[in-house]
Amino acid sequence: MLKIENLTKSYDKKTKALDSLTLSVNEGEIFGFIGHNGAGKTTAIKSITGVLPFDSGTVELDGISLSKSPIAYKQKIAYSPDNPDLYENLTGIKYINFICDIYGLDGEKRRLNIERFAEAFEITADLGSPISSYSHGMKQKVALIAALAHEPKLLILDEPFVGLDPKAAHSLKLFMRELCDNGGIIFFSTHVLEVAEKLCDRIAIIKKGVVIKEGFTSEVVGDSSLEEIFLELVE
């Protein structure tokens, strides 16, 4: 279970990018994080991945605290950012292998996982090329393979569908569901409300660093559409 309590972050000590953010996500859930630009989605995601230090609050996964045991916490998570800036001098396969080395994923399992995800994202043939030759979508695919390959308990994705072709986007949705069916957790942000509505078990809408609506998708949406609810709430 992912537990976020009173997460607060300020960049300039005046305005709070995150104001006592409190959320919890259970095993098997796909959790959608929605908000307009500058609402605090990426700040929240970077904080719970350990990329950005936060001012106060706690982040725990299965009782393991990010602040107290960062290595043990990070061993169980994977992150793919909205803008996949990867090591341009490495080839795709070298980058993925480097990530697998750090997570301690060994031989056969590593090969099978990478092969499976690479085939699904149709990028196998290009894995031997330097990342500098990749398009945005190809970099996104490599970042996703690296994130999925070590079978994380918690997968954190920031705008994962941006830049992906329709087939890859479809494959990603299947992999997300599969990971959750195996007891994993997905925490992802998106601006594509139709995707969030169809894919997420639970959603939270964030505005100015504060969660203004949270719950099961069916409860939040009710008889309207997520788009209508979102526009109504953020106005």
């Binding site: 090591y87 490495l90 080839t91 795709g92 396969i93 292998n97 480097f98 080395d101 750090i102 301690g104 994923l105 060994d106 031989g107 056969e108 590593r110 090969r111 990478i114 092969e115 690479a118 196998t124 043939a125 290009d126 894995l127 031997g128 090329s129 330097p130 500098s132 030759s133």
Partner: peptide
């Protein structure tokens, strides 16, 4: 940027059955 030759998993001998290495070795190599 020039693309590398077409990659195939069966050709990538170094990547199959790879023994796990320490994080320091992996980071140093990178």
């Amino acid at each position: 940027t020039a693309k590398g030759k077409k990659f195939a998993f069966q050709d990538a001998k170094s990547d199959s059955n790879k023994k796990p290495i320490s994080t320091l070795t992996a980071t140093y190599k990178k």
